[in-house]
Structures are given as C-alpha cells and as structure tokens.
C-alpha cells in the first residue's frame, strides 16, 4: 500500500531523511519511534506530500507522491492524517468539522456528510458534542474528533503524528483506545508515537529512526526483545524504565 524507496530530504545543508526505505502492506500497523529530531514526523509527512523530498520514490496505492503530475489533493483525500495538536477548525462546530471536506472535496451532499459524521462521532463516543465547538472540548475529545474527521473521508490508510504527545496523561488512553480499535478492524496505519504499550499491543512492525535514517525495521517482538542496534537498545532502556 505504501512503498518508500531510498527517500532523502534536506533543508539546505541539514539532512532530515537519508535513504529511507520501507513498505507498509494493507492492514499493517507500523509504529515509528526514535529520539526527537530523528525525522519520524517528517517520514510520515512525506507520505502524503505535506513535506517535499529531494530524492527517492514514494508510491501510495499505486500513485507516485513525488511525481509533479500527481494530483496531490486527490491523493491526500484518500490518506487520513491526525496531528499532534488536533488541528480541528476552531470556527466550525464539531459536526461541520467532520462534514466540510466530505462536501467540498468528495462532493457528498450536506445530508449524507452529516449522517456519516454523526455515525463516526457515535463511534468515538462524542455524539452528544456534535453541535459544540472545538474550543469547548478537552484535548482528548478533540483528538478523538480529529480521528473521526479523518475517517469520514473513508481513507485507505491513516497517518498519526504523535497523536497523544500534547495530551494530559489521563486523556492519553481514550485516544489510544480509539486507535487500538481502529487497528483491530484492519485499518492500515503509520503511527509516530512514544506509547510503547500501544506498540506492543497492536503494532505489526516497529520502525526505529535515528538521525534521519531507518535504523531498525522489524517485527515488534524482534524490536522489543532484542534490538540489533546499540542506539535502539539505549532508547528502549530509557523509555521503558519509567
């Protein structure tokens, strides 16, 4: 479903990604982790073309992301994305947040879009908040709405960019629960996260990055039980000890 082949990216002289290659198959859940500044977020932002890259190739569902002829908007409408800071549209009610792109991008009618929105809000347990505005919800609720908003577009895969990093600790689980359920239903997912519990529960594979390179790309068992690189061993020692 997603193939990355020797993808490199730099800002001026600063190398952000170096020769990153990996594949994500349908139904797989890939957890991307690594120290800050290792290029994790950039790795998933190049997948839907939010960040340009200079060399290499990315194919999403048969479409080349780097090809200037590719209709990026169309490609992006098939790839759901969830951000660290939720990024709901503050001037729209929750249900309008879910409906607007369905109407303006997919051409659904307002009625169909709202229906679908209400169903998804039900699913993330927020049906009662439909007419409120994002600023009136807690962080955890906003992030669940953001996930529902991405799902409303019927994406073929979902990208998560540190979805729980901006949340109060007590709200992390409500978001992880929604993500776990999604993974169990067979959604193809790429998640940048430090939630190793989530990785252990649902990941098919774990990608470990350091200094813009994919250092490990292995099954979760292999990654957690005997990471091959020293860098990953150090990382796991730090992150799993508290």
């Amino acid at each position: 479903m997603i193939t990355m082949n020797k993808v490199s990216k730099h800002y001026g002289a600063f190398q952000v990604l170096t020769d990153c290659s990996t594949q994500v198959h349908k139904g797989e859940v890939i957890v991307v982790c690594g120290p800050s500044g290792s290029g994790k977020s950039t790795l998933i932002k190049v997948v839907n073309g939010l960040e340009p890259f200079q060399s290499g190739e990315i194919i999403v569902n048969g479409v080349s992301v780097g090809d200037p002829k590719t209709n990026l908007s169309k490609l992006r409408s098939t790839v759901g994305m969830v951000f660290q800071n939720f990024e709901l549209f503050p001037h729209m009610s929750i249900i309008d947040n879910l409906a607007i792109a369905q109407v303006k991008v997919l051409g659904r009618t307002q009625e169909v879009a709202r229906d679908k929105g209400f169903k998804l809000l039900d699913r993330v347990g927020l049906r009662a908040q439909a007419e409120k505005y994002p600023g009136q919800l807690s962080g955890g609720q906003q992030q669940r709405v953001a996930i529902a908003r991405a799902l409303a577009m019927d994406p073929i895969c979902m990208l998560f960019d540190e979805p729980t990093s901006a949340l109060d600790p007590e709200m992390v689980n409500e978001v992880l629960d929604v993500m776990t359920e999604l993974a169990r239903e067979g959604m193809t997912m790429m998640c940048v996260t430090h939630e190793m519990g989530f990785a252990k529960r649902v990941a098919s594979r774990v990608i470990f990055m350091d200094q813009g390179r994919i250092v490990e790309d292995d099954s979760k068992e292999a990654f957690f039980e005997n990471p091959r690189s020293e860098r990953a061993q150090q990382f796991l020692a730090k992150i799993l000890h508290h």
Binding site: K45, N48, L50, S73, K74, R76, S77, T78, V79, M81, F83, Q84, N85, E87, L88, F89, A101, K104, V105, L106, R149, A150, M153
Partner: peptide, 15 residues
Amino acid sequence: LPRGQKNAALAMGFT
C-alpha cells in the same frame, strides 16, 4: 494561525 491548520486542511484533500 497555527501552521498545522494549513497542513490539516491540505491533508484532508483541500486544494
């Protein structure tokens, strides 16, 4: 506006 707003809109397929 937060930079992420633009990204969020683009990521949903808005031109």
